[in-house]
């Protein structure tokens, strides 16, 4: 099933508007690389799974701590491309996030400030389809960060594995039934330790190849994009 045309049209319009709003530099370059057409078969897509670790859920006031990324295609994850970018938060870390994310001052030594982090991150995302589990976090935080640094929005084609599961395989579930670890277990995927951006990105990428293997109906980019 195709994404309704007006949505495709609306996405393209927003992407184009954002391109125009972006200043010269990494964000503008990201937009200039464009995005794959919605009719592209998933077999032809270059994708990248991304997971952000933050110290809260408020896009504008919580700190972005880490981005984990790994490149993939519809049937494979390129483990060797795994990257972790540590980001130095503007304010001092709260105790809680240190505990949850096992991030210590030591680990922050090689962390980049937000602008440098985006300058490193955006070229990796350019021209790709982004994949995340519960992609609201990634879209929201990347958008907020770009607005802070470049005063322009972040618009990108996103696949959300949680939304995809709900759409393709609807069924009654427990309250936490769509969590990454639960879904992975359903697909026979091994249990990973959570709260590490790179491991979560890998976990999410593996979930998508499992979902696509089970669905197996030759979908296009339009079919799998987050609505």
């Amino acid at each position: 099933m195709m994404l309704p045309p007006f949505n495709a049209w609306r996405f393209s319009r927003r992407f184009d508007a954002a391109r125009k709003a972006a200043p010269e530099g990494p964000l503008r370059d990201f937009y200039e690389a464009g995005h794959p057409g919605f009719a592209t078969p998933v077999e032809d897509l270059e994708m990248i799974a991304i997971d952000l670790e933050t110290d809260g859920l408020d896009f504008d006031h919580s700190a972005l701590l880490e981005a984990g990324l790994v490149a993939m295609r519809h049937d494979r994850v390129f483990a060797g491309t795994g990257k972790r970018i540590r980001i130095r938060p503007p304010a001092a870390l709260s105790e809680a996030s240190v505990v949850i994310h096992r991030i210590t001052d030591e680990a922050l030594k090689d962390a980049l400030d937000e602008e440098a982090a985006l300058a490193k991150l955006l070229p990796m995302l350019a021209g790709k389809v982004l994949v995340a589990h519960f992609a609201e976090i990634e879209t929201g935080f990347l958008d907020a960060a770009c607005r802070r640094v470049y005063d322009a929005p972040f618009i990108a084609p996103f696949v959300c594995t949680m939304a995809l599961e709900n759409r393709w395989f609807p069924r009654p579930r427990a309250a936490d039934g769509l969590r990454l670890a639960k879904l992975r277990a359903q697909y026979g995927l091994p249990a990973y330790r959570g709260h590490d951006g790179l491991v979560d990105a890998l976990a999410c990428a593996e979930l998508l190849i499992a979902q696509l293997a089970v669905r197996n109906s030759g979908p296009t980019l339009g079919d799998i994009l987050r609505r």
């Binding site: 049937d75 494979r76 390129f78 483990a79 060797g80 890998l202 593996e206 190849i209 499992a210 293997a213």
Partner: peptide, 11 residues
């Protein structure tokens, strides 16, 4: 080795 490693899923 990991740089040359791919993860695959087989039904």
């Amino acid at each position: 080795l990991i740089r040359a490693l791919e993860v695959r899923y087989y039904r």
